[in-house]
Computed example of a mutant assay.
Amino acid sequence: MAKVKVEMPEEFLRKLSLLGSKTDEIAGRVLEAGGEVVLAKVRSNLSSVIGSGTKYDSRSTGELERSLGLTPPLVDRDGNHNIKVGFAEPRSDGGSNAMLANIIEYGKNGQPAKPFLKPAQTSSRKACTSAMIRKLEEEVEKL
């Protein structure tokens, strides 16, 4: 049986061991950096579609846009770190912000769809990944 011994630089091993104890903390900051990029794109897309192309004047109160935000970074039951872009609930009138966003995104009878979430997801993917990589490198350098 063959045997292989690989030695890694001490500095690299030290950073890996430090990262191991701070993984949750660093993962949260990295996810927030990426989430902010996506949130900005969703907010921009939402602002551009609300009230556009309607037969009547917009009755928008701005409540849907104000309720858009990021959740804190969380760890699910499988151990995956997640952050979500979404809408706070409930509305001041008792309705659901998620329902209104769904109607805007997919339309309804007599109201055409005005997608804002899906385009934001696809167009911000590379920028989000880049922001997360930069943040991770920055955090590793601090160790």
Results as ranks from 00 to 15, higher is better:
Asn82Glu: 12
Val42Trp: 05
Lys41Ser: 09
Glu137Tyr: 05
Pro72Val: 10
Leu18Ile: 09
Lys108Tyr: 05
Glu65Val: 12
Met132Leu: 13
Gly35Phe: 01
Leu70Trp: 07
Lys55Ala: 15
Pro73Gln: 06
Glu32Pro: 02
Leu68Ser: 07
Asp57Glu: 15
Ile133Cys: 02
Pro119Arg: 07
Met8Ile: 15
Pro115Lys: 05
Asn82Gln: 13
Phe87Met: 06
Met99Gly: 00
Arg29Met: 12
Thr122Ala: 10
Thr71Trp: 09
Leu13Met: 13
Gly79Tyr: 08
Lys118Tyr: 09
Arg59Met: 07
Ser60Tyr: 11
Lys126Trp: 02
Asp76Gly: 08
Ala120Gly: 11
Leu136Ser: 13
Met132Ile: 08
Val6His: 07
Gly53Pro: 03
Lys41Pro: 00
Leu19Arg: 03
Glu89Val: 02
Val75Cys: 06
Leu46His: 02
Arg14Ile: 12
Lys41Ala: 13
Leu143Ala: 15
Tyr106Leu: 14
Lys114Thr: 12
Leu39Arg: 04
Leu31Asp: 01
Lys108Thr: 15
Ala2Asp: 11
Leu136Met: 14
Gly51Ala: 05
Arg125Ala: 15
Pro9Glu: 14
Gly110Pro: 05
Thr61Cys: 06
Val85Tyr: 02
Glu32Arg: 12
Leu16Ser: 08
Leu117Val: 03
Glu11Thr: 10
Leu18Asp: 13
Val38Pro: 03
Arg29Pro: 04
Met8Glu: 06
Asn80Arg: 14
Val38Trp: 04
Val75Ile: 15
Ser58Asp: 12
Leu13Tyr: 04
Ala88Phe: 01
Asn80Glu: 13
Glu89Phe: 01
Tyr106Glu: 12
Gln121Asn: 05
Leu13Phe: 01
Ser67Glu: 06
Gly79Trp: 05
Gly20His: 09
Leu18Val: 11
Val4Pro: 00
Phe116His: 09
Glu139Gly: 03
Thr122Ser: 14
Leu19Ala: 14
Glu36Asp: 08
Pro112Gln: 10
Pro115Asp: 06
Asn102Gly: 07
Leu46Met: 10
Thr23Trp: 07
Glu137Ile: 03
Ser21Met: 10
Ser130Arg: 11
Gly107Ile: 05
Lys22His: 12
Lys15Ala: 15
Ile103Val: 15
Val6Ser: 07
Ser96Leu: 04
Asp57His: 03
Pro9Tyr: 02
Ile50His: 03
Ala33Pro: 09
Lys126Gln: 14
Met1Tyr: 09
Gly62Met: 06
Met99Thr: 12
Gly69Asp: 02
